[in-house]
């Protein structure tokens, strides 16, 4: 149990996928201009990441390793994740219109994101079992959601701040992201301590 909790803390703070591994920068910069859109994106990502971590682990251990096809993992993961997300989107749209309204457009958007494939691939070296793989996916999603919400709130405050003309828009957003990344690197000290 403590091991699983450690995995969550490590993926949320120490090895944050966005700020430490620089994965998923597209939604990080693109969808954070308002807090409302960010929540939908974070929820959709949480779902897809967990799904990707679980299915990636299953496909790898039960299909690719026995057939000695581990070099096929990237292609196989993309295929399986995209297919499953499409399937889930269909089911969600038919069964829960409300949920579809919240997640709808973000689900297909996040499918082709490097963050999702990254989690499935990193899982191969990090996680030792199915449960660990799923928890790793959950932790990665938590870290992503945390960073997205923090960054969206920062950007809403920046919008009201007197930013020099040359830095307005994407410039100040990238500088802010860099400083956040530096701050998160500080968590790496937690491991040795």
């Amino acid at each position: 149990m403590t091991e699983l909790a450690l995995i969550v803390i490590a993926t949320v703070l120490v090895n944050n996928l966005v700020l430490v591994n620089f994965l998923g920068l597209c939604p990080f910069m693109g969808v954070t201009s308002s807090t409302t859109g960010t929540t939908g994106m974070a929820l959709a990502t949480a779902f897809v990441l967990t799904l990707a971590a679980a299915t990636g682990h299953l496909v790898y251990t039960w299909l690719l390793v026995p057939l000695e096809l581990t070099w096929l993992r990237t292609l196989a993961f993309i295929l399986v994740i995209a297919g499953l997300v499409q399937l889930t989107e269909l089911i969600v749209r038919a069964t829960s219109p409300l949920l579809h309204q919240v997640l709808g457009i973000y689900l297909p958007l996040i499918t082709s994101n490097c963050l999702v494939l990254g989690v499935a691939l990193i899982n191969l070296t990090e996680a030792e079992g199915f449960v660990q793989a799923v928890v790793y996916g959950l932790g990665a999603a938590g870290g992503f959601a945390l960073v997205m919400v923090l960054f969206a709130s920062l950007r809403e405050r920046i919008d009201a701040a007197p930013v020099p003309v040359a830095f307005r828009g994407a410039g100040i957003a990238l500088i802010t992201a860099g400083m956040m990344s530096l701050a998160f690197l500080g968590f790496a000290g937690m491991i040795r301590g």
Binding site: V59, L63, L64, L67, L69, L72, L75, A76, L79, V80, G83, L84, Q86, L87, L90, I91, R93, A94, P97
Partner: peptide
């Protein structure tokens, strides 16, 4: 393996989208 996975998932998607009631 790839063709099998693709066929399986594609078949599932087609099946589900046909079975689902009016949206």
């Amino acid at each position: 393996v790839l063709a099998g996975l693709a066929l399986l998932l594609g078949g599932l998607i087609v099946l589900v989208s046909r079975r689902l009631p009016g949206r």
